[in-house]
Design a protein around this nucleic acid. Structure first.
Lengths: 226, 226
DNA sequence: CTATGTGAAGAACTTCACAGCT
DNA sequence: AGCTGTGAAGTTCTTCACATAG
């Protein structure tokens, strides 16, 4: 990404060195690899093992971790359970985040039904739409609510951390404005259109067309690895 | 981002300088901005205009373009229609790409109904699933077909360029193998699991959990812009 | 002897300053 | 005068080599 580079650079003056965005992305990958190894009963891992699973080299694995502390044992490697927990802490996954999805179409429904985020501390607390025929519809244990009553909802729930935009392009900016007006702190946009958000809001976007266009570029022989 | 860095680095020895991955991502953004300006009747644009719309600076806009040639007029700026066409060519969007989606659940259906890719030269030619109750289902002008007959389909269609994986995690690798066995050249994976593909296949993945985890990291106050 | 952690070297990317057209 | 195009400078990220710890 890159298109997804967070609005702010995640930079910080002061004692701690600035953390590359790519490091954060890789940490999420390490987490997934550790989960898999853990689930098949492996308890220790070396930076070399980790780098074979991902597509980076072992220096980079160690450097990425070294931004945050020392998590391994020299001559031995990393304890998987421990490293998982530490990476989760680094990513702030030890804190519960309240999540809403706006848009109860196919995409919004697909996202809502995805169970993966629950186990990472993300709690889906609401699904919204503007279409009266969708409001009241049940998706798993939630009912679709009216986006026009979003402010009430936020008050009742005492603030929302992350809003996912899964509406058509033409209403995406309206939804974003609604989210921001209600102090949603981070926005993940799936609408195929650039959205304006204020500087202090954390923003990522996922654009299908962008991904396809990138594939298209590299599909050209002249851009392929010699 | 990043997680999405294409398998190969897009590097090329020889006369042409290597093109940063981020440049490609930004080109897709410029394209979207140009489309918008074009649709509201603007015909000329400066690198400065372009950079105000995106979040980069004007030096970078010009540097990005300069990897591929000279597209502007000094003292004047860029002709929007011309620049659009040139960027489209750079990205290989002047070539029609045949696209299939595997997985006719909510996500696959949402992707299939998205009209945006048609206007970029991506032609959705097939949707596949393994579930007999879904096979035959109509999505717009296409009928869901059996993934177990994918090889026949590819033969009839004389090759497929891009396969989109929109199935649950447990069957994602199987689908990927099926695609690769049939010489699909590029894969866009939406399943929340890392997939192994051979080195010569162009690969991008979109992982909801990764995006949420990145937001989570930057939601921590200590990682926010001072 | 093995594998981590890290300062330093190297590579890649971005910013800058200004030369070069119009 | 105005804006592009680009070599060079500056910054950030990655790789490396090795000191360090078990």
């Amino acid at each position: 990404m890159d298109q997804n580079k967070t609005t702010r650079k995640g930079r910080r003056e002061g004692k701690r060195q600035s953390i590359p965005y790519s490091t954060i992305v890789r940490l999420t990958q390490y987490l997934r690899i550790l989960d898999r190894l853990n689930s098949i009963g492996i308890t220790m891992v070396s930076s070399n093992d980790l780098c074979e699973e991902s597509r980076v080299n072992s220096f980079l694995v160690r450097k990425d971790l070294s931004y945050f502390g020392e998590f391994g044992t020299r001559g031995v490697g990393y304890n998987i359970a421990y490293l998982r927990e530490e990476i989760a802490k680094i990513l702030g996954l030890d804190v519960k985040r309240k999540l809403v999805i706006v848009g109860a179409g196919n995409l919004g429904t697909a996202l809502a039904k995805y169970r993966g985020f629950r186990e990472r501390g993300f709690e889906l607390v609401g699904i919204f739409d503007s279409d009266p025929t969708k409001i009241g519809m049940r998706i798993d244990n939630l009912q679709v609510e009216s986006i026009f009553k979003f402010d009430d909802f936020v008050r009742v729930h005492n603030g929302i951390d992350i809003g996912i935009i899964a509406v058509p392009a033409f209403s995406a900016q309206y939804v974003a404005n609604t989210l921001l007006a209600n102090n949603v702190k981070a926005v993940l946009n799936f609408a195929p259109i650039p959205i304006e958000v204020s500087e202090n809001v954390i923003y990522q976007s996922v654009d299908l067309t962008t991904h396809l266009e990138i594939l298209s570029f590299y599909l050209q022989d002249s851009n392929r690895k010699g």
